[in-house]
Structure formats: C-alpha cells, structure tokens
Design a protein around this nucleic acid. Structure first.
Length: 415
RNA sequence: GGCGCGUUCGUCUAGUGGUUAGGACACAGCCCUCUCAAGGCUGGUGCACGGGUUCGACUCCCGUACGCGCUGCCA
C-alpha cells in the first residue's frame, strides 16, 4: 500500500481558464510539490457539446503561463491514460457493471441511476471539518443519474470513477462541491473503495459578492496574459486568496510558498478578487525585473501594439525603455507611457546629457528666482505634450538636442 | 422551500478568553523630488445583530439577519 500523494485538477473545457479554476489548480499543484507527490491534469469533457480542441488549449495555455506543470495528463501521458474523459468510456462501463452487479443501479426511462443507501454521511473535510449530511430522505436527495439514455456520463459518477482509478489521494476543489461530496462518498463505498481525503477551498467572488463568471473579463486568466501581467505576480496573488502564510508576508517566492504550503492554513470564508491589489503586486514584480528582462518584455509589448521599433537604433530604444523601468505596473501601460519617444526620433547628442541638462535647468531657475519645477513643467509639456512622464533630464537626453529645441521653439511660437 | 457553508477596516488577511484588534491594497495628508512612480511618515474606517457561558468575549454555545453554495439526464 502506497501513501503517495496524488492530486488532480479536473477542469471542463469551457473555452477559457477561469481564475478560480486557476487557483484550484495552483493549490493542488502547491500541495503536490510540497509533499513531493503527483499533480494530475484530467479533462472532464463528458459534455460533448463544448468539448473542443481550442477550449482545451486555453486551459493548457493558462496553466503553462502560471508555471503549473502537471506530472500526468494530456501531452505528458502517465500510468493512467487516457486523461480525457471522452476517451475513458470503457472504464466507466466497467465500473457501471460493478455497481450493477452489486445492486446499486436501477434504470429509469433509459437513464441509469444510483440507488442511495439512504444514510447519514459524514464528510471529514481537511478545511471545513466534519459535516454531517442526512441523505435519508429521497424527496430532498433523489437518487442521482449517472448515465443518460444516450449513453453519455454524468459528472458525479465519472469524477469518482476517475479519482478512484487514478489513485487520487486528496481532492482539493472549490467549495461549490462540498454539498456534492456525500454523494461522491456513497459511490466510493458502493464500489467498495475508501474515499480520498477532501479539502474544499473557498470561492473567489466579484466585488459585488457575486461569483466570478465568464462575463467578467477579469475572471479569465488570458485577460492577465493580454494585459501584460507577470505570471509570477498573478500566481503570487492567487496564493493569497484563501490561503495565508500567517505571518503578514505577501510578496513571496513560489519556492518559499511550496515549502510552507499547508491545507491547514486555508481559510473558510470566500474571498473577493481585488484587481487593485493584484495591480500593485504586479508593479512590485515589474520593478524587480532585471534590465534585460524588462527590455525584452517591453519590446515584445510595443511590437504587439504595432510600434515599429526597427526604425530606431537599438541603443535609442534601450535608453528610452530604461527610463520607463520601475514606473509601470503592467506592460499594457507602456505604450501610453513612453509612446512619445517613438513618435519621431533623433539620436542623443554627446554633450546633451542628463547631468548637463539638470545643471542648466537648475541654474536657470536660480537666476529667475523660481523653483526648478516652474521650468521643468513647461519644458516637459512643450517637449512631450504631456504633464506626466519619465525623468525630464533623461528624457531630454534621450530625445536629443535638436528635436528638443525644435519642439520648444514650436511650442513657444504657438503662444 | 430544504440542506450545507460563511460573516474581523471598502478589499485580502493576522488573531483561537484578558491585544491600544496587527499587516497589506485602496484612500487622504506630509516628506523626498524635475513630473510620475518608487520610498519614508502620519491618518481615518473593522470584530453583522441579539442572547447566553465566563471574573472577563472578536475568540466558546444558541438564535436572527445577510451572503454564498448544492438541491440537473451541468461540471
């Protein structure tokens, strides 16, 4: 008998990876990594209507982006192949037969139903504690269908069958499944098997307390990919939703989280997703990027936005982007932030450097008896057309003497 | 409706009988400063409500309210 830790993430291919699902996957992954166990990916595509290749690709992409690699599942294979429920029909038939032979199944207008033992079922949940469910009343807990007349399978049955067949030791899933758990335990027992341990994690809600749904753009992982978030930051933020290191730490290295992750430290109440906090945390990660990492990400971002960086000398681009490093929280803010750099170009002249510019502006301000800001602001506006932006001195240096003077002249002529 | 779960600043959370109820995001002010950020400092806002138990409850028990989930031949 092995006591190997085996957990799974079993999403239905809906066309995108839900942020809540991503966190469920993350917690399973953390648990597996912490214990040196296995993280299995299983696609629950019993509902053929929405089972498409693209829908599954969205799940793979999201998990990859977050760095949640699976040890068994699609693409990587494993001892319990296949990992798509649509390809496991024979296994389900076998298990159905088993239940039938043991007298747990009856037919109802062509559908197969599981006859409940009609007892109390105690769910001993790692997060929620012991909960007593009374399933004795058929009126309130009808016998569940496990197979439709057309032969397709119902979630409860195939989910349990696969968990059993794949030797899943711990089921870590959303709390929306808590009420389903006693039914699942009934099937395990009818199959003569010991149910896995359960850990139901709190749900992630919207600002208004509603469940995050596909309608909310922030509910999809691909939204964060598109908006230029850093996967490590999103992952870190997700860890903080429902789980806590208990010592006030927030920004944490994933290796450290793996080291201390414990289901015992998962909370009981649902959490509201806070875009502001994620934005802040992402900024923290962005500021920590090395110059080259920042440069690579920035260039990729600008190019995907249609900016033709090839028209500019790399030296100029590097200098320009360098002044933006540490200023932005997400990369989708970059085009608007530094766009003026590339509207038209001019190489920086040698003597026209930041130190010199700063000295000139400061001495001029002193002569005029005004604060430096009184000069800096108009200059910035004249040169950049905006009252916000990177450090003026560096900005001017990078822009170059000729262009700067030309713009100032033009601005002055306008008034 | 029935069953289940939950309820600490606006949000994420720490806290398991005695704390000035702590941290973070957001917000406001100040400092720094060429702007914006970043950083530093300061500030306000919180234990859903009502009963118990107790010398003493945010912490334990009961109830109420509110929220969420399940109650499918969805997953």
């Amino acid at each position: 008998m092995t006591s190997e830790i085996r957990v799974r993430f079993a999403p239905s291919p809906t066309g995108y990876l839900h942020i809540g699902g991503a966190r469920t996957a993350l917690f399973n992954w953390l648990f597996a990594r912490h214990h040196g166990g296995k993280f299995v990916l299983r696609i629950e595509d019993t509902d053929i209507k929405r089972n498409t290749e693209e829908a599954m690709a969205a799940i793979y992409e999201g998990l990859h982006w977050l760095g949640l690699n699976w040890d068994e599942g699609p693409h990587v294979g494993g001892e319990f192949e296949p990992y798509l429920q649509s390809e496991r029909t024979e296994i389900y038939e076998r298990y159905l037969k088993k239940l039938q032979d043991a007298g747990h199944i009856f037919e109802d207008e062509g559908a197969m139903r599981f006859r409940s033992p009609r007892e109390h079922v105690i769910v001993d949940d790692i997060v929620c504690g012991k909960i007593d469910f009374d399933l004795s009343n058929p009126a309130t807990h009808p016998d569940m269908t496990i197979r439709r007349p057309d032969g397709s399978w119902i979630f409860h049955f195939v989910n349990v069958t696969d968990d059993l067949e794949m030797k899943i030791s711990h089921v870590i899933r959303g709390e929306d499944h808590l009420s389903n758990t006693p039914k699942h335990i009934e099937i395990f027992r009818a199959l003569g098997a010991t149910p896995p341990r359960y850990a139901h994690i709190p749900l992630i809600l919207n600002r208004d307390g509603s469940k995050m749904s596909k309608r909310d753009e922030g509910a999809r992982v691909d939204y964060y990919i598109r908006r230029g978030y850093l996967p490590a930051a999103v992952r870190n933020y997700l860890c903080l939703l429902g789980w806590s290191p208990k010592d006030n730490r927030e920004k944490m290295d994933i290796d450290e989280i793996v080291r201390i992750f414990d289901l015992k430290n998962i909370g009981r109440s649902s959490a509201t997703f806070d875009p502001d906090k994620l934005h802040w945390l992402n900024g923290d990660y962005a500021r920590e990027l090395s110059d080259s990492e920042f440069y690579d990400l920035a260039v990729a971002r600008l190019k995907s936005n249609g900016v033709k960086l090839d028209k500019f000398p790399e030296k100029y681009v590097r200098a320009a982007l360098q002044t933006c490093k540490g200023k932005i929280n997400t990369f989708d803010e970059l085009p608007a932030y530094c766009g003026f750099y590339v509207r038209d170009a001019l190489g920086a002249s040698e003597k026209f450097d930041a130190t010199e510019i700063e000295a000139i502006l400061k001495s001029t301000a002193k002569e005029l008896g005004v604060k430096v800001g009184a000069i800096v602001h108009p200059t910035r506006l004249a040169v950049t057309g905006s009252n916000v932006g990177p450090s003026l001195y560096h900005l001017l240096e990078v822009l170059g003497k000729e262009k700067v003077l030309a713009r100032i002249d033009r601005a002055l002529a306008t008034f």
